[in-house]
Design a binder for these strands. Sequence first.
RNA 1: UGGGCGAUCGUCUAAUGGUAGGACAGUGCCCUUUGGAGGCACUUGUCUAGGUUCGAAUCCUAGUCGCCCAGCCA
Length: 573
Amino acid sequence: MTSPGSESPDTSNADIRPTSNFLRDRMAEDVRTRKYGDAHVQTRFPPEPNGYLHIGHAKAIFLDFGLADEFGGKTNLRFDDTNPEKEEQEYVDSIQKDVRWLGYEWERLCYASDYFGQLYEWALQLIRTGKAYVDDLSADEIRQYRGSLTEPGKESPHRSRSVEENVNLFQRMKAGEFPDGSRVLRAKIDMASPNLNMRDPVMYRILHATHHRTGDEWCIYPMYDYAHGQSDSIERVTHSMCTLEFTDHQPLYRWYIEQLGIFPSQQIEFDRLNLTYTLLSKRKLLQLVQEGRVNGWDDPRMPTISGIRRRGFTPEAIRAFSASIGVTRTNGTTDIELLEHFQRDDLNRRARRAMAVLRPLKLIIDNYPEGQVEHFEVVNNPEDPAAGTRQVPFSREIYIEQDDFREVPPPKYFRLSPGKEVRLRAAYFVTAQSVVKDAAGNVVEVHCTYDPATRGGDSPDGRKVKSTIHWVSATHALSAEVRLYEKLFATANPGDAPEGGSFLDNLNPNSLEVLASAKLEPSLASARVEDRYQFERVGYFCLDPDSSETRRIFNRTLPLKDSWAKIEKKTGA
RNA sequence: UGGGCGAUCGUCUAAUGGUAGGACAGUGCCCUUUGGAGGCACUUGUCUAGGUUCGAAUCCUAGUCGCCCAGCCA
């Protein structure tokens, strides 16, 4: 017998290399042509600490860390913390925890805010070479001057200030002499460019805000475009992967690096992950948390890493999924069932089995001796003999699943019904004899007889039963709360708001069902948080961190595939 | 209506001028001490129209459709 709750060793990760993709091809080519000379491949994962990581980030992490590793390179974790108004230490901490949980360790922990000094010096350099200027236009005016998609912009009246005046003004911006929004530093590029990003983009804005790391040291903060490429360059990033919506920013990314004459990091874009029935927008996820639509960032229904971790998903499955979806430049939506498939596949191989009855129905074995207890040896994981066996107590009164008994069985229903014989998993064959009903006519108790010759679940005469059901001995049963999760959203594309509504209207009202009185086999007493189990015939479950000595709570990660449910649905049984 | 990016089974993805393949989903059968898992089989695809070529998903031309961009967000 192995120790309770321990999972079988991970065997799922050996073959997660996808066949081919353009990112790998690109890196291989750069290595082959020695594009960066003797420099090793360097990547970075650059989250903004303004929310929790989600499954979409897992794909980026897999690519940033995985690809670098394939080429013997390194990966930094870099916080893109250039906007103090939205960023918090809580997010910095959760992101590190999540990256590690996914199975990755960074070479260096970096912050864009580490480079504020250097970025400031470079801004001065651009001013001195006539490539940047301080603009006094308001945000509204800047927008108006920018033109539109089809019309060129107009140059700001402040565009031709002298270098001296620009230096002076910029230094005073930094010194805190001006209020928020009164001035910005802009790059002097081309107000007529068809690429809006090149129409004199803002480099610095004035923000008298306390930064989670630099405190009140700065009151001017660099914009993403001005900070990101240079941060890459400072870290000698060779391959800076980002999502498709940044494609239009690439000319600007290169422009800054070229004007400054610094290490030529290169940006490469790939497709963001989209999943059916899932929202992967930090803004909307934050809204769900703030409005209390879910119970925090780690609510097991959330697509956040912390949410699916609590739900019982494993890093191995997430990595296998990430590998399988591939990477391209086409915008698509991956079926959530694919993620679930990889999770079931992983858990099927590794999770210990146990018997648990979610909606108990008392089954009394009339011809079984009162007071007698037997212990049956049950395999812990039929997929992994090394997982060993355990002893499960059996007695005259047991609980079975309400679903496993029908007084009038529909066609193709093979479970217990009056006069029908089934196998109690690893125990005996039993035949239902009679039922006891309450005043409302509900079956509250089923009486049956057992065949002592079928001990262990085999019939010496070779007779077959159509079905095996699970059970828990009533006197030995542990009580537990079980939380059943369904999809958080009822529609495949939750971002599509209905007419006159919002994405919140797509929320699934039945995404959480709490079962207060489930019955568990006694071995589950030793379950620890993040242990994963398959409750036989029911699904995959794990202990929720809210559990205590007196209150046991299990989360359903995923139900097992259920072919009876399909038949039932089709025949309307 | 400017610019950028893209288009292969229902979905995701391979094929890098030479047999359109895989996975998920679906369907049927087999097997089963989990109606789980597993096994077998089946169905469905190169956006359109021209062209180059012995040969085109791949190259060319023209169209069509989709996504992204007008934050002092990232």
